[in-house]
Design a protein around this nucleic acid. Structure first.
Lengths: 111, 111
DNA sequence: CTATGTACCTTGTATAGCTATGTATTATGT
DNA sequence: ACATAATACATAGCTATACAAGGTACATAG
């Protein structure tokens, strides 16, 4: 019935959320782009399109929240690994605060 | 320091989230636009700009998730009250399912 | 009679996700 | 040997939406 609406809505919800998710994942260790997508897909129900992730990582880099480095492989295409900066960690902390408030707010109005 | 980034991020997170919030609030009873904004502001930490709400309500109406009716006041400007439709209720249910999964996913990757 | 609060609305701008497309390498299947 | 899939990066164009800024109109308080 209103599948179309719900589908578009989910895409809208991802705006902003994906940056938060990516920064959260990078907290633990460094990841390269393709790996990040796989990691998130397997451990959660969230799918990040490639055309979403790469521009997103460039934005995070421009904002100095992550750094990146190319790592050559013994065989195959080199990988670009991303690493949280100190500013990235600080920013993530602020985002977590907001997210928790948002969660709480929605619980409050939805009950 | 990266206040600017966090500020913009919060605005992005609201995309989609606000539709969810509004539908949730309308579950309980009918509200008119201005009242909706006040209701959400007082009971949560979320601010909805007027320039956001009115176009949003029109979208929800076009999608048949809400209906609206003008109610004359004894004095002052008439109010436009919004009411959830059956489709709105069904759609909200789907949105809640997705939201809870999203919450769970983020908890999982952020620990 | 001016300012504030209520109550509606629209236009323009910036942002970000998605589809489609492209490049290149390696592994797998027939 | 050749096609297909999987890995791994990237970009362009489309679309949707939040927000600032502006506008209209009525009522009340100072």
């Amino acid at each position: 019935m209103n599948d179309e609406f719900v589908h578009k809505w989910k895409s809208q919800v991802k705006k902003g959320t994906l940056a938060f998710i990516v920064l959260n994942v990078l907290q633990g260790k460094e990841y390269y782009g393709y790996e990040l997508i796989e990691e998130v897909k397997q451990h959660t129900s969230i799918e990040i399109a490639e055309g979403t992730l790469y521009p997103l990582m460039n934005r995070l880099k421009k904002e100095s929240l992550v750094t990146s480095k190319w790592v050559e492989q013994d065989s195959g295409i080199p990988r670009k690994y991303y690493c949280l900066t100190k500013m990235g960690i600080r920013t993530l902390k602020e985002m977590k605060t907001y997210w928790m408030e948002l969660e709480k707010s929605i619980k409050k109005i939805s009950k």
